[in-house]
Design a protein around this nucleic acid. Structure first.
Length: 127
RNA sequence: GAAAGCAGGGGAGGUAAUCGCAAUUGAAACUUCAGCAAAAGCUGAAGGAUUCUAUUGAGGAAAGUCCGGGCUCCCAUGUGGCCAGGCUUGCUGGGUAAUUCCCAGUGCGGGUGACCGUGAGGAUAGUGCCACAGAAAUACACCGCCUAAUGCUUAAUGGGGAAAUCCCAACAAGCAUGGCAAGGGUGCAAAGGUGCGGUAAGAGCGCACCAGCAGCAUCGAGAGGUGCUGGCUAGGUAAACCCCGGCUGGGAGCAAGGCAAGGGACAUAAGGAUGGCCAAUUAACCUGGUUCCUACAAAAAGCCGCUUGAGGUUAUCGGUAACGAUAGUCCCAGAUAGAUGAUUCCCCAUUCACUUUUGAACAAAAGAAGAAUGAACAGAACCCGGCUUAUGACCUGCUUUCACUU
């Protein structure tokens, strides 16, 4: 299962913004960045008359694995997990979240990775 | 029956269900704009983080980015020829848009064979290099072999002489001049190889066979094949320079490039004008601000390019084949922080254990309730054609060798 469209983060400017402004939460095998949304940066084409949601993105670099198959599997795993956890939450304003995996994350099993992800989400106050 | 060789097929099972994602078609509602209308509203256009419906949704290598193109932009460019430069370009003929690719052959090498491999012009155009070793590497005689020739010494023996330490001839031995390239040794390589003859010893010196070269005849479209004759033939390296033949505008790559919108504004940076004005502080210096000049970007965000193409597929014809021609038919991913996933039951397939029958046993056949598994390599990013590398189970065809039976 993949994240639905309204929960995805898009556009290069958004990522630049979150890299600069986001508050960071570290763990052994990943980094979570969270900010409030910056509506100025959003693409003009998108008209915001919807209820606010948490927008997520995941970055898995080539250093994690050179094979795109394993990267795809990790991405799908995280997408499914995040959509299960965060789809029911409706915050008062829009929040952007961004998880980047560190190169050593393949040493852990998938269930422990998801556990780490839950801890970080709790730490940041999202869940 | 066994062991092999070659060529293919086929690649997360199913016209399954539910949920989810991407693209597209259609419908509905919504939003915006325009027009009409007194108003409610109606009509038209556009839009997408809405809803519903339908269709489609990754590979044989999508990979490596090693070649060749298409396409796009920049630079150069009148046309033709010659020269220079560049090219791992190099047996022959064909195929292709093109190639370092493919097909069919030739030569050479490997295999009992089916078959496989092949970086296959020139070393007699020239220049260079060949360490170490070895006497000598484009030239030789260290060891060795030889006394036929010439010279010298000794000289059995024979002859002459009255005799002599005399003279003549001379078997044999030794030495020198010389002959040899057989053998030894060195080395990747030592003046074609093996054998017989021949010789003082040897040597293509002669002969036979083999290798190479040249000429002639003949077969073939050609690379080349076969036969005859001749003389007797000097290692390697051209991925050393080079010679010969062939080909050849250069560069960047879809983040190519184009369009729309927006704009020389705001902001930033460095300096100059020994400029003007203002401030600290009256003048000069200095510092800061402002003005003017210069540079830079936001810009990888929207749309196009973008997937109808040297396309797939079927039939017929031509061709040994690669491939080509004609006709019919089909439309089959197009994302841009980047879509293909998850769950479930049934069916199917394989394996395991189970039952029955045949059977001494191994095993074979049938059966149906059950369990496990549904795989390896691997993920499109402008598009094609090749090459290379990775890859589990299964299936098909042709051929070879060996063994057995008839």
């Amino acid at each position: 299962m993949v994240l639905p469209k309204h929960m995805r983060l898009k556009g290069h400017r958004c990522f630049d913004f979150i890299y600069k402004e986001g508050s960071r939460f570290h763990s052994y095998s990943m980094v979570l960045r969270v900010t409030k949304a910056n509506p100025k940066i959003k693409s003009k084409a998108i008209i915001q008359n919807e209820s606010f949601a948490i927008k997520c993105a995941i970055s898995i670099s080539n250093k994690v694995s050179k094979k795109s198959v394993t990267r795809n599997k990790l991405r799908r795993l995280f997408h499914q997990h995040l959509s299960n956890r965060l789809s029911k939450i409706h915050p008062e304003f829009e929040i952007w979240a961004f998880i980047s995996l560190k190169p050593n994350c393949l040493k852990n099993s998938t269930s422990s990775l998801l556990g780490e992800c839950d801890k970080l989400l709790f730490k940041s106050g999202l869940a």
